[in-house]
Design a protein around this nucleic acid. Structure first.
Length: 575
RNA sequence: GCGUCCGUAGCUCAGUUGGAUAGAGCGCGAGCCUUCUAAGCUCGGGGUCGCAGGUUCGAACCCUGCCGGGCGCGCCA
């Protein structure tokens, strides 16, 4: 139980005591969910603040300040509360005794890598799908953000006590993988000695297909060089997709992103799942044969109305109904995808998809389909906005046509995995982001990656120096920590709350900002020692104070490590 | 035309799901500093939270309508 949960329970007890005494109506229900216990925005207001009186006043048929007064009197009786004050419109500010923070410091050091993790008992089973890049080439920077956000979100949800499956959907069933196979066939002929010249328009030109062509040449010899497409396409497609997945897995490994499960679209289709899903929709009158309206706001010379199998997504607020089957009888991407989501729900209570913003238009239909099939809104789609690559403020040119886009591997090789991951997580996922190669590796205060890493390295350095000087031996007396130092503990103690809040909002970037703020507070305290040697962490003349401050530093370092672990960023020992 | 995301200090961005006097870094101004880790530290000025209404004890946050920008909009995946 976190400190905040503990005090929420105490407030609940106090309210019940008031109720028992007849100061509150007997039928008043406290579990509205609107009562919060949090650190006040302004530390001068105390250690904890609650809006309980304001949230309950109306239902208790009293005014907020009167109720706050009663509640404050009750809370002041607690041993851990030094003072309870009513402020503003009816806030109750609690000042805690210093020992609360000393105890919390010990808790951090005792729980080490578990500090901030919620009890698993409260968790749900959540399936998080992310990356799912088409298996037609290596990952580029467009995929990077979704990969990092999805991976960090999955970790975050685990920290918050949920059971998480990390999922990758392999789109190996569409026309694009046929295009891939044809592109590879060209490289295969090239490997056999043919001169193929420029790669024709419409095929994938990238050099990364050259080794695949070689591999096929050594496997098949010239057997398929002049053969009809029907003879080689399936085999080439299978091998090309496998080779592309190997590339993608290598890229993911480079980024430190992992998945528990790769699910093949082709297998989903072959399993009959889409047929079952469609039958289900038909049974509920949510699928029918119909003709789509011509698209608006576009030229439509080549528009030919044709009857298709449609999902009634307009019943869920979509602009138009959406086809699940193509005119040729094959499944659309959407048709297979809704079956896939149904399948994910077999072992999950909730689904999260992390998609690029270019798929924004398909969110509603997919959420609608899941709601229709699951009987409840079980899917939450998180959109990740575009990344603009810059170098020294100048946009990096990307030519997709020649296949020479900036790959994920290039970026990780240049700036490092940790810098990529941390930087991506310093921006809300749903806002556009600039990624500047120069700024990301800058060793300065305005680079949060450096700033947080440096705080951790500094703390580790303190430990090493203390050990060398023999200052770290013996029990630490935490009563030697003063109010300013305990304020840093209080800030570090916000971590479990930050994890819970970030997980509930599904916003992993909040952890990055929490760590930046905590690091800033640590650096500030550390820098005080420059002006006042008595405030230094390491003092040869005061081994007792040194030991207490080392415990403080270690606790902060532990929280930074835990936060970085959520983000999948390494905590460095020295810089 | 429609959908969706965004609009907060000169710049880049946070804002704890509706709370108190809206924050941080950079830049700017003023001091300090040769260091327990150095690439600095401390303090200060700086705001019509895009605009206009609405909801309520209370709105940057929720609702409606505009304005501006990004992304997307046929059976592609």
């Amino acid at each position: 139980m976190t400190l905040f949960e503990r005090f929420a329970a105490r407030i609940d007890d106090a309210l019940r005591a008031l109720q028992a005494r007849g100061d509150l109506p007997a039928d008043l229900d406290f579990d509205g969910g609107s009562i919060v216990v949090e650190p006040p925005r302004d530390p001068a207001h105390g250690d904890l603040s609650t809006n309980a009186a304001m949230a309950l006043a109306k239902r208790a048929r009293t005014n907020p300040r009167a109720l706050a007064g009663l509640l404050a009197t009750e809370l002041e009786k607690l041993d851990e509360v030094a003072a309870a004050e009513v402020a503003g419109p009816g806030f109750i500010n609690l000042r805690l005794i210093a020992d609360v923070w000393r105890a919390e410091l010990r808790t951090i050091l005792c729980e080490v890598g578990r500090y901030g993790r919620a009890a698993a008992a409260t968790g749900r089973r959540i399936n998080v799908e992310y990356v799912s890049a088409n298996p037609t080439g290596p990952m580029h920077m467009g995929h990077c953000r979704g990969a990092v956000v999805g991976d960090a979100l999955a970790s975050l949800l685990e920290w918050a006590g949920h059971e998480v499956v990390r999922e990758y959907y392999v789109n190996d069933a569409g026309g694009q993988v046929d295009t891939l196979a044809r592109s590879v066939h060209l490289r295969y002929r090239e490997a056999l000695g043919e001169t193929v010249g420029d790669i024709p328009e419409g095929l994938y030109p990238g050099d990364y297909l050259v080794p695949v062509g070689h591999a096929l040449a050594s496997e098949f010899g010239d057997r398929y060089a002049q053969a009809a497409e029907v003879d080689w396409l399936p085999a080439f497609r299978t091998r090309a997709v496998a080779a592309m997945l190997d590339l993608i897995r290598a890229d993911l490994a480079k980024l430190g992103v992992r998945h528990d499960r790769f699910t093949s679209e082709a297998e989903v289709q072959a399993s009959g799942a889409p047929d079952r899903a469609l039958a289900e929709l038909r049974a509920r009158d949510l699928a029918y044969e119909g003709v789509l309206e011509p698209p608006k706001g576009k030229a439509q010379e080549d528009w030919t109305p044709v009857s298709l199998t449609l999902f009634r997504s307009t019943a869920f607020g979509d602009d138009q109904d959406r086809p699940v089957k193509k005119a040729d009888g094959g499944w659309t991407y959407f048709g297979a995808d809704l079956a896939y989501h149904l399948r994910k729900l077999e072992d999950a209570d909730e689904l999260i998809d992390v998609w690029g913003a270019d798929h924004a238009g398909t969110v509603r239909r997919t959420e609608a389909a899941v709601e229709a099939l699951a009987g409840r809104p079980a899917l939450d789609v998180k959109l990740v906005q575009m990344v603009r690559l810059l170098r020294g403020g100048e946009p990096v040119k990307m030519s997709k046509r020649s296949g020479s886009f900036v790959t994920l591997a290039e970026v990780v090789d240049e700036v490092g995995r940790d810098a990529v991951r941390f930087t991506v997580l310093t921006r809300r996922a749903d806002a556009q982001m600039d990624f500047d190669f120069e700024k990301v590796v800058e060793a300065s205060r305005d680079n949060p990656v450096f700033y947080v890493q440096y705080a951790h390295a500094r703390i580790r350095s303190l430990g090493r120096k203390a050990a060398t000087a023999g200052l770290d031996a013996g029990e630490a007396d935490l009563s030697l920590l003063d109010a300013e130092e305990l304020a840093l503990v209080a800030q570090a103690a916000g971590f479990p709350r930050a994890v819970a809040g970030a997980a509930a909002a599904r916003e992993p970037h909040r952890i990055a900002f929490f760590l930046h703020d905590l690091s800033a507070a640590f650096h500030a305290l550390y820098n005080r020692g420059n002006d006042d040697p008595a405030r230094r962490f390491l003092r040869e003349d005061a081994p007792q104070a040194t030991r207490a401050r080392l415990e403080l530093a270690n606790a902060v370092g532990q929280v930074i490590r835990n936060g970085l672990a959520v983000m999948g960023v390494a905590a460095v020992e020295e810089m």
